[in-house]
Nucleic acid binder design. Structure first.
Lengths: 145, 145
DNA sequence: CTCCCTGCAAACTGTTTGCAAGTAC
DNA sequence: GTACTTGCAAACAGTTTGCAGGGAG
């Protein structure tokens, strides 16, 4: 109700929420703003602490509940990596994968994996029917090298 | 002290433990036997319940502690997948990846990913220095199709 | 005005730690 | 005999649920 929301991502997210019958509240706006603008993996507690700076009444529970809805709508994705599996990042449209900085958690996106041939080979050799794949690169971002 | 341990994997694991200064106990043997022989992802509770069939005195805590050591020695690996991140599977030597049945949790191994070129491209475009990659296939095993 | 959403407190689940007794070597 | 291990109980951390009050549409 007071939120001076910045960029366009958020308003798209807002629209998406509305279209799916969810209400726009200050709590949700605060959480969305943090996640939409972050280039870094954030876990629920980090999002909570960050969002409370602009919305001190926010409860941790609402962070969980908002993340759940954003994930359900495909606006964010949960990221698994060696240091934990409870972090989130804004999702990109299309078929993209993540490269994550093992030091600071900064995320970039890439596409163009050429996994088709590999998948076919593995299907033939293993007898499995491949439904999905999970590819992620871990490394050091420019600043952390 | 009574364990009629079957195959060879275990004895290799036993040796590895000994070589690293760890003692061989019934609890550890029971846990190792279950994990070494399983083709399926197992979480600590599942391992506990299974191992208790041959070693009823086993405590869940010892399962956690044994898994910790086996992982530290590289004998098992923790597997992350959409349904959870607390499952383990015996590790294979060399550079292998997993294909997991989304229905029953059965695991097969494969190697021969051709990620070199992709990694180079991503490094160039993103400025990240890639240290590791994480590739996993999800699908249906022969029996679950 | 209605129903959804919030924050609090409490319940839960999975995992870790402290400790005295037990046991591998 | 010594030091590592065990199992229990209790502590912990992260997440979920019940509920009465509050606010979006």
């Amino acid at each position: 109700m007071e939120n001076p929301v910045p960029p366009q991502v958020d308003s798209q997210w807002f629209a998406c929420l509305r279209q799916n019958g969810y209400r726009l509240t200050d709590s949700r706006r605060a959480v969305m703003q943090i996640v939409a603008e972050s280039e870094y993996l954030l876990n629920p507690l980090e999002i909570y602490e960050e969002a409370r700076r602009t919305h001190p009444r926010l409860g941790l529970v609402s962070v969980y509940r908002t993340l759940e809805k954003l994930a359900e709508l495909g606006l964010i994705e949960r990221v698994h990596h060696p240091n934990g599996c409870n972090s989130y990042i804004a999702a990109r449209p299309g078929h993209t994968h993540l490269i994550i900085c093992q030091n600071c958690g900064k995320v970039s996106y890439f596409s163009g994996d050429r996994l088709g041939p590999l998948v076919e080979t593995v299907e033939g050799e293993s007898g499995y029917q491949v439904k999905d794949h999970w590819l992620q690169l871990i490394g050091l971002c420019r600043l952390c090298q």
